[in-house]
Amino acid sequence: MTPLVLALPVALLAGAWLGAWLDRLVPVLWGRPAQGPFGPLRDGAALLARPTATTEAPDRLTRWLAPGTYLALAAVGLSVIPMAPGLAPLDSSVGIVVWGACEALTVIAVFLHGWSPNAPFPLIGAYRYVAIGLPVMLPSMFVLIAAALPAESLSLVQVVEAQREVWNVLRQPMGLPLFLLVGLTLTLRGPFDFADGADIAGGTSGQESGPGRALWQLARLTMLTAFSAMAATAFLGGPLGPGLPGPAWLALKTAAVMAVTVGLGHTVARTTPSQMLHPLWVGALPLSFLHLALAGWVAL
């Protein structure tokens, strides 16, 4: 562990703020009035000023455990990502595996969130998310293993070092698009927001208000930050770049991935869950196998 760990909360909060601002900026494309950088802070203050709603016989433990877990997973996921060449807050030799575990456990956090209010629509959102989450997390593993192949290491520091000559996004062109599907799912966005959709009146968040809702939204945004940083590290060379210091490059690339993720979330329509399962199992999964095979062949 390095003193860089102290930078994690700052990075998570700054990323959450940027994500929330992008969420309010992208609808400008469809004629909504633009919001300044204080928009997210105002909305956050309004949430905190409201009381926490209660339902009949909720599961009080999981009500706070769910957003807490989600937030912790984002923090752990971000902690293994190198912020400068050779320097990660937690320099794990199996960073990719740590991130993979955080991804998989997100499904549990979202499920608990839908379980806790003891109400039908949140529970439908919870089950539906598990059904979609599983086939999305599987390709993610293959995509990340492919990203580790050129480095011959599961350490993210090595994955970055291996991209000094050429970034993975060029070496493995299918990797980043497939990983973006994972990002949309991990952060409950647009076409993959089967947990909190409009058809189930806000789903797992539908019975929430006040600080509880604020914490859940914060957790979603920190996960967006961690995901974007991970995508920037695995495919865009992370902190590598000329001129600017490493952390600045990582921040810029993270912001770029974040903008693309938020943009896709607002542009792509969500289909029905049953129609979504088909392309995930029959399309994305075999494609990720093929991607891994090609990446292996190139690395050899």
């Binding site: 992208v26 469809w30 076409p191 959709g197 409009a198 058809d199 607002h266 329509a269």
Partner: peptide, 18 residues
């Protein structure tokens, strides 16, 4: 319902969605 709230608003204000 398909998750395109801002585009639905744009349509209601009289412009085609993207």
């Amino acid at each position: 319902l398909l998750g395109l709230g801002p585009q639905a608003d744009r349509l209601l204000r009289g412009t085609a969605p993207r």
